[in-house]
Every structure is written in structure tokens, then in C-alpha cells.
Design a protein around this nucleic acid. Structure first.
Lengths: 151, 151
DNA sequence: CCAGATGGTTGATAATGTCAACCAATATAC
DNA sequence: GTATATTGGTTGACATTATCAACCATCTGG
């Protein structure tokens, strides 16, 4: 298998996917970047969200997670609540405006998925989900292994 | 099919893939970013490369392509040659140093591909390539359609 | 009680990506 | 032959993404 083509295929997919999302963001008039959208979505859907749970789940740098959360708070889309179990940490909850924004985000994501998957069978999509889950796990395992090697 | 999971699967894949490549860049001591690597690779492999052909093939913004080329020239990895057919345009060719760098790039990409595809069958990989080609085409078609709509 | 670890914050920087305005050259239409 | 439109590429500017380091407050384990 040409390794070149796997690498290049991934690059191109990443690129067009992001470009498509950005176009959708404009079309749906969502005043948020892609990462803000993902995070707001997560806060709306997952109870007891904290900065730390996003670091875990999204694999994002905690500095960046903090900044995104602050920007969502500045936009009055989420609020912080005390975490009675750990005063270092705060729970994140959506505001009414955040919940309303979620509706538009869901429309955007539905549309993006439909566009991406046109002409693909349900089997193909399921295979894609399974294969990308494996690839993601492989890549994450490699990174963890490296980190451990450095320690 | 949960549209959320397709979107999130793509985000996570993009993220871990890039992180893995960056780790590989460090490990192979390649003093280039991912985009510089892709472009140098393209220049080494494809005759009559110009800024314009990269814009076409990689779907990248021409401003960015120009900047990357300039940086590769500054690093003495590529050179420009006159294009006798069009004085606006220049052919890009690798230098000896660029060709040597290609060897390391190929090692990096081979390793990244092997890591990503661990535990996947040849059929899975082939399915992945086919499905991502369709998705990339779908997303690109959507973007082109939109652009036409605006004109 | 205290050293070490953890959750989160801020500063700084690099890479990626886009848009706009521009110039030189080419192509097209008349 | 010439004016106009288009194209290839350049530069300025800015936003988003991503990371690392240093730090503070708090928690954990011995």
C-alpha cells in the first residue's frame, strides 16, 4: 500500500472537511470557530463537564481548553458552577443562549455529515467509523508510548 | 447514523494524526513543518511543479503556498527555474539537500502510516482509501458549488 | 504536616488558514 | 493592434489552532 497515498489522503480529507465546516459556520451564521462549536456542544450534552474532562475527551491542550471556555463565557454561552468536590475545578453549564446555539450547531453538523457521506452506503459509513476509531486509537497509543519513553 | 459521531470521529482523527506526525518530525529530526514536508515531497516527485499546481492539487490558498515555497527556498531545499511558457510562473525543483531531506520524509511517512494502520486488514485500508476519496470529493464539490452560487 | 501531583491560568510563540490588494504577464474579444 | 479581463504569484494583515513553560491554588498520600 502506498504510504504516500494514505498520508496525502488524510491531509486532503482534513483540509476539505475543515473548509466545509467553516463554510457551514458562515452559512448558518454561527459566530463561533470550529473548536468553540465542539466545546459548546460537549458542554450542552455532557453533565459535569469541566476543563479537565475536555482535555481528556478531545485530547486538547489544557491551556487551549481554558481559553476556549473563557471565550464561550465571554459570549455568555456557558457559565461556571462550583464543584463541591474539588475547589480547583468548576463545572461548566450552558446558558439559554448556549442551548439555542446548540440547535444551529446540530443543523450545521447534520448538513456537513450528509454532504460528506453522499454516495456512501451505510456499510461504508460504518466501516469508516470503525477504521477511524482504530486509527485514532493507534495514533493516540503511539503518542502515549512516546511520552512514557521520555519519562 | 449519529452525525455527531462522524463529525467528532473526524475531529479526533485529524487531531491525533497531526500530533503523531509532529512527534515523528521531532523523532526524525526533520526541521520542517508538516506543510513544508508535503510541499517538498511534491516538488521532489512531480515534474513541472509550480505554485499553481500546488494550489490545485493540495487545495491550499495561493498566498500560503507562496510563503511555504519561499521558506523552502530560504532553507536551500528547492530552487526556482524559469518557465519558458509563462513568465509569470516558475518551475520548482529540489536541490541536493532537498532530495536528501526526502529520504527522511519518506521514512517518517512510512512509519506514520504503519502506526496508523496497525491491526487493520488490507481490505480495511483499501476501503478507507476509497471512502475518504469519496468524502473528499463530496466536500470539495460542496465548496465549489457554494462558490459558484456566490458568483 | 508536607512533598508531590493535579486542575486550571496566563504568557509566549509557531503553524495553519484565509482574505484583500496588488503587479506582471497572458488570453480574449473586438 | 489594443483594451479589457483573467491568471500566476506576492505581500500585508489577521484569525484560528496548537503547543510549551511557568505559575497558583487545591488535593492526595505517606
Amino acid at each position: 500500500m502506498a504510504t504516500q497515498s494514505l498520508n496525502e489522503a488524510l491531509h486532503q480529507l482534513l483540509h476539505v472537511y475543515k473548509r466545509q465546516l467553516r463554510a457551514g459556520v458562515i452559512r448558518h451564521q454561527i459566530p463561533l470557530s470550529i473548536t468553540h462549536i465542539r466545546m459548546l456542544k460537549g458542554i450542552c450534552r455532557i453533565p459535569d463537564s469541566t476543563a479537565g474532562t475536555f482535555v481528556q475527551r478531545m485530547g486538547q491542550d489544557k491551556a487551549r481548553v481554558t481559553r476556549i471556555i473563557n471565550e464561550l463565557m465571554n459570549d455568555a454561552l456557558v457559565e461556571k458552577r462550583d464543584n463541591p468536590h474539588d475547589r480547583r475545578s468548576q463545572f461548566l453549564v450552558p446558558t439559554d443562549a448556549g442551548l439555542k446555539m446548540l440547535g444551529r450547531i446540530e443543523a450545521l453538523e447534520e448538513e456537513a455529515a450528509v454532504q460528506m457521506t453522499g454516495q456512501l452506503s451505510a456499510e461504508d459509513i460504518e466501516a469508516f467509523m470503525r477504521i477511524t476509531a482504530t486509527m485514532t486509537q493507534n495514533a493516540a497509543d503511539t503518542a502515549d508510548k512516546e511520552k512514557d519513553d521520555h519519562e
